[in-house]
Structure formats: C-alpha cells, structure tokens
Design a binder for these strands. Structure first.
Lengths: 114, 114
DNA sequence: TTAATATATAAGTTGTTACTTATATATTAG
DNA sequence: CTAATATATAAGTAACAACTTATATATTAA
C-alpha cells in the first residue's frame, strides 16, 4: 500500500493538488481530525459548492475519505493512500491550523456528532 | 536565512511552482549540479522559450540562480533560499533524474565548460 | 407534510498557465 | 565582419482552474 518511490509525474500531480492554499489548509486540518463540509464553508468563507469542489479533488486522488453521519458528511484523511507518506512529510513542515477549529468552536459553529 | 516555519500561503505558492512535471524535474536535476538552458531544451524536447520561461519562474522565487559562462547561462540551485529546506525535503522523496544527464552525455550533448 | 439544512452537481465566467512562434541581443567561430 | 549559436522577452492561443449562481437530492425539525 505504501510507496517507497514516487514517479516524478505523479509527484507533480500531488504537488499541484496541494498547491492551492484552500486545499493545503484543508488537508492540514484533516491530518489532525475529521471535519464536515459546512465547517469548511465557515472556515474559508467560501461558497458551499466551492468547498465541495475542492474536497472532490482531494477525494478523487484518494487523499481523503467521506463518511455520512446523519445530515452531515464528514471528511477525514486517508492514511492508507499510496501518496500519504509523501503528503505527510510536506504537512509536517507547515504550521498547525488548529486555531481555525478553535475559532469555530468559540463561535459555536463546530459540528459535534455521533 | 533558513525558515523554521513556513506560512501556509507561502507553502502553497511553492507547491504550485513545483506542481509542474517540467519544473519539478528541472529542480531535481539542479539539486545535483548545474545545467544550462540548451541542455534542458534537449532533455525536455521543448522549445527554448518554453524552457526559459520555466527557469524564470524558478528564478523569480529565488530557488535557482544563473551564472553566465561564455555564450551559455548555467542555472544552479540556491541552497540559501528561505524555501530551500522545504523544497529539499520534497526532492529527497523523488527518484534520481541523473539518467537524463547520462543520456545527454551519451548523445554528446552535455555542455562542459570552464 | 412542509420547511429548513447539508450536500453535490451543472453551467457559466474570469483569470491563469503552459505552451507556441516571432524577434531582439549577446557571444563565439570562421 | 558575418554567420551561427545561446538566450530572453513579447505576443498570441488553447486549455485549465477557481470561483460563482442555480438547482436537485437527502435528511432533520416542526
């Protein structure tokens, strides 16, 4: 399942996917725990379809998974993905984005479920 | 000079820059030694202006430097750049591209100078 | 059952990117 | 000096990316 060496073309595709501040922040947040679509809408102050489209790109590459919980769909990181070790090395070099979740919580907009 | 932590927006810009197979391969090659424009033209079978434009993007971000040697301009990696540690971690996870230089040499198209 | 909420998808728009060809400049070779 | 070589920049183009609004579906609340 894990990949010891990545072809350079594959790496470029992953880097391009991560080369967007919204998706990069999303996946950094997801690396610490799950999050649902409406929470991202609040965090990024972006339209709901915009958020869904970014998540679709991450999902299509297999970097994230979705799990339905009632009316919400929670996304989480897929640590079994072949590209995860590569992505993980990158994420480790980025500052924590937990403040964004803390702010959500302060506003009472964090979704706690099941 | 070195950066211990990168803002996420800056990281996204770097990842986008690296998220192109031509530039990613270029910088992986440059991480092992210098190379001139016409060598890249051979390696990538791309127009000379196309190569120059990719190199300009890398140079504008400070990731590479240029040095004129006679009629050639040699590019090399700039290890003093603030983003180098970040980039380096990524490059270490990619397969060597030295075969491309070896092939050039076999064709007698490697530029050895000064 | 109806209204509200959460999400995905479709369609349209605007800006960006990766290339190309054309051209100008500098250096070297004959 | 002239021709050839190496490079950069300008201009044009086609494909793509990131958003928006509109709309359809599913779930929950009243």
């Amino acid at each position: 399942m894990l990949k010891t060496s990545l072809e350079i073309e594959e790496a470029a595709v992953i880097l391009k996917l991560l080369g967007d501040k919204t998706r990069l922040t999303m996946i950094k947040i997801l690396d610490t725990g799950e999050c649902c679509v409406c929470e991202f809408v609040e965090i990024f102050q972006m339209s709901q379809p915009g958020i869904s489209q970014h998540l679709k790109k991450l999902k299509d590459m297999g970097l994230v998974r979705e799990k339905k919980k009632g009316q919400w769909i929670f996304y989480s990181i897929n640590k079994n993905n072949v590209y995860y070790p590569f992505v993980s090395e990158i994420l480790h070099q980025l500052p924590s984005q937990e403040n964004k979740l803390i702010n959500l919580e302060k506003q009472g907009k964090r979704i706690i479920c099941c």
